[in-house]
């Protein structure tokens, strides 16, 4: 803690800074409002993408993730991030290298070539779990930071996959029917809605979006059917890759399958930003593929 703020090295990933920079800006501002300071993590790279990169060579995946972690170790700060995919790479590799000597030795052997060494001195968190943790922030503090309640909106929560699974390698306790992100959404004044098969994957991961786009879109389409059936005005998630899949995906679904959905997709940090009074311009919502106006009309 420093000046009463919990400080973290902010790991950006790729899609947030390079496609949805509003998420990055929102994360920094909204976190500051609830006592979390996100500091720049200089020189970070792609986490690297666990599905795409890990599929080719897991050894490189461990080494590259470790490199990113070491940058934070050198800063002496724990990492906070806003993407499930990055969470898998950074959190899981951090834990595995701490526990398994053989992996750690293998990685340090390669990293020695660039004068780096994994020491296992920091921890990794998803910003959403920091928001939920009463020791750092907590649902009440989120509620108190709201100046523009999202009253009258119905929001479907998409947890994504790598945040919670595999549960035995995570801090969480339930991947079948968690409700904690719904709590965070309800704290904004919105109404979270339950929908069929809410824990199913968005379809993008594992390189499938790149390998067989139509296949991944069919999975997304099933989720859009379920979300619409439940009467949601918008989808919220905590992973920019899921966001890309839902957002750009609806455009692609229209092209490929001829089905039009038009459901706004917002990262939780964007929702929190709106609830804390940030404008759509400050969140670069115009970069979204699906127009957020129907949702914004309900709250502005």
């Amino acid at each position: 803690m420093h000046n009463g703020m919990h400080e973290y090295a902010f790991f950006l990933g790729c899609i947030a800074p390079n496609r949805y920079p509003g998420c990055e800006a929102a994360a920094i501002k909204t976190s500051r409002n609830v006592g979390i300071e996100l500091l720049p993590l200089k020189g970070a790279s792609c986490c690297p993408a666990p599905g795409a990169f890990g599929a080719v060579d897991l050894s490189v995946w461990y080494a590259m993730a470790a490199r990113n972690i070491i940058l934070a170790e050198e800063m002496g700060k724990d990492i906070a991030l806003i993407c499930n995919g990055c969470y898998k790479s950074i959190y899981e590799v951090n834990e595995r290298l701490k526990e398994h000597d053989d992996l750690r030795d293998q990685v340090n052997e390669v990293l020695a070539e660039v004068d780096m060494e994994f020491k296992g001195t920091i921890d990794v968190y998803h910003l959403a779990e920091l928001y939920y943790d009463p020791k750092i922030c907590g649902v009440e503090k989120i509620r108190e930071s709201v100046v523009r309640p999202l009253d009258g909106t119905k929001i479907a929560v998409h947890y994504g996959c790598h945040l919670l699974k595999p549960i035995k390698e995570r801090r969480f306790t339930d991947a079948e029917n968690p409700m904690w992100i719904e709590e965070l959404v309800d704290a904004l004044g919105a109404e979270s809605v339950q929908y069929r098969n809410k824990m199913q994957c968005c379809g993008a991961g594992g390189g499938v979006r790149g390998f067989d786009l139509a296949h991944s879109l069919d999975i997304t389409n099933e989720k859009l059917i379920n979300v619409t059936e439940a009467g949601a005005d918008a989808i919220t998630e905590v992973c920019p890759f899921c966001q890309l899949q839902y957002d750009r995906g609806q455009i692609e679904i229209k092209e490929k399958f001829g089905i039009e959905w038009n459901i706004p997709v917002l990262h939780y940090n964007e929702l929190l930003g709106l609830a804390q009074g940030m404008s759509p311009q400050e969140l670069a919502l115009d970069l979204h593929g699906i127009d957020c106006k129907p949702f914004l009309d309900k709250i502005l």
Binding site: C14, I15, P17, N18, R19, S45, C46, P48, A49, A52, F53, A55, V56, M64, G207, G210, F211
Partner: peptide, 22 residues
Amino acid sequence: VPRNFLKTIQLIYTTGHGVPNN
């Protein structure tokens, strides 16, 4: 290996990002 994986690797090698800035 499907080509999209290799393209991602090339991007990470040259820019450090699988999805680079534009």
